[in-house]
């Protein structure tokens, strides 16, 4: 499996030559630094640890002297963390995620992955935290039908029956009101419409979980 960490930038529409309008999601994807490789021998499974979003990015720290950089990093990143990034010969990043791979042995720690690992037309999966909707009723949360609005009905949006009288209890996992959203969601099989590794750009057909600015993980088959 291959994958990258990124951020959701927003949605727009693009036209095909045939005049068809397609909805797309724009992602700022990578660059990601490999900060650690895990193998069966060392950890019992094969994975890469990817780092994303430098604590001191180019735009805000360009004019800082090396001393100022050091000072700021010391304040923002704990020493054990800094040592971890120093091992990969990179600067501290805000996000660390693991990516399961078939064999991690061949990948060099400190190597940088960019959006070019994906190609136009390829199918990918996107994992992110969905927008939180709070505590919602069964109608909104599970698309229950609800009951009548009129004819003297006193029940409108309640979940109503929770099961048969014969069971004399409610089965585990019975759907009802509760927290909706703010959960880890994976959307599968989104088609890549545009890639620009230089701009860290990945454009996918369709929607991606989470608000604008949300952290996303894009994965695809090798």
């Amino acid at each position: 499996m291959k994958g990258l960490i990124g951020r959701k930038v927003g949605m727009t529409q693009v036209f095909t030559a045939g005049g068809e309008r397609i909805p797309v999601t724009v992602l700022e994807l990578g660059p990601c630094v490999v900060t650690q490789t895990k193998t069966v021998a060392s950890d019992g499974y094969e994975a890469l640890q990817l780092a994303f979003d430098p604590v001191l990015d180019e735009a805000t720290s360009r004019d800082l002297s090396p001393e100022q950089r050091e000072k700021r990093l010391a304040k923002r990143v704990r020493k054990p963390q800094r040592g971890h990034f120093a091992k990969a010969e990179t600067t501290p990043h805000r996000v660390l995620r693991e990516l399961r791979v078939a064999t991690a042995a061949g990948v060099a720690v400190g190597s940088v992955l960019t959006a070019e690992v994906f190609a136009v037309g390829e199918v990918v999966d996107v994992t992110a935290t969905s927008k939180g909707k709070g505590f919602q009723g069964a109608m909104k949360r599970h698309h229950f039908s609800g009951q009548g609005a009129s004819h003297g009905a006193k029940i409108h949006r309640k979940p109503a029956s929770a099961g048969a009288t014969d069971a004399a209890r409610v089965f585990k996992g019975k759907r009802g009101p509760g927290q909706m959203g703010n959960a880890r969601v994976t959307v599968r099989n989104l088609v890549v419409e545009m890639v620009d590794a230089a701009a860290n750009l990945l454009v996918l057909r369709g929607a991606v979980p989470g608000p604008t600015g949300a952290l996303v993980m894009v994965t695809g088959e090798e």
């Binding site: 930038v9 927003g10 727009t12 693009v14 797309v24 724009v26 700022e28 620009d196 701009a199």
Partner: peptide
């Protein structure tokens, strides 16, 4: 960051030769 959305739209127009 939102500029990436504009970039995508402009590329799409350029690709189709739209003005």
């Amino acid at each position: 960051m939102a500029d990436l959305v504009k970039l995508v739209e402009e590329r799409n127009r350029a690709e189709l030769g739209l003005d």
